[in-house]
Computed example of a mutant assay.
Amino acid sequence: MKIKILLVDDHQILRDGIRNVIERSTTMEVIAEAKDGREAIKLCNQLKPNIVIMDIAMEGLNGVEATKRIVQENPETKVIALSMHSSKRFVLGMLKAGAYGYLLKDCDSDELIKAIKTVSINKKYIAQNISDVILSEFISGQHEEMILTPREKEILQLIAEGKSSKVIGEILFLSSKTIDVHRKNIMDKLELYSLPELTKYALKTGLISLDE
Rank of each mutant, 00 (worst) to 15 (best):
residue 183 R to N: 13
residue 98 G to Q: 07
residue 110 D to N: 15
residue 129 N to R: 14
residue 63 G to I: 10
residue 32 A to W: 06
residue 100 Y to H: 07
residue 107 C to K: 02
residue 186 I to N: 03
residue 182 H to G: 01
residue 196 P to E: 07
residue 131 S to Q: 10
residue 155 I to F: 00
residue 42 K to C: 09
residue 122 N to F: 11
residue 59 E to K: 15
residue 151 R to F: 05
residue 86 S to N: 14
residue 74 N to Y: 06
residue 31 I to E: 12
residue 180 D to L: 12
residue 178 T to M: 09
residue 148 L to S: 12
residue 133 V to A: 06
residue 195 L to T: 10
residue 43 L to W: 14
residue 162 G to H: 09
residue 129 N to F: 08
residue 142 Q to W: 03
residue 118 T to F: 02
residue 119 V to W: 05
residue 98 G to E: 06
residue 64 V to P: 03
residue 152 E to R: 08
residue 161 E to L: 09
residue 110 D to P: 00
residue 38 R to V: 08
residue 180 D to F: 03
residue 125 Y to R: 02
residue 25 S to T: 08
residue 207 L to Q: 08
residue 63 G to S: 13
residue 145 E to G: 05
residue 95 L to F: 04
residue 17 G to I: 14
residue 40 A to E: 15
residue 148 L to M: 10
residue 130 I to G: 06
residue 152 E to T: 05
residue 149 T to A: 03
residue 128 Q to V: 08
residue 37 G to S: 13
residue 131 S to A: 11
residue 104 L to W: 01
residue 149 T to G: 04
residue 114 K to Y: 05
residue 190 L to F: 12
residue 51 I to M: 07
residue 135 L to S: 02
residue 102 Y to K: 01
residue 20 N to K: 14
residue 84 M to W: 01
residue 50 N to M: 05
residue 47 L to H: 10
residue 72 Q to F: 08
residue 11 H to D: 02
residue 70 I to Y: 10
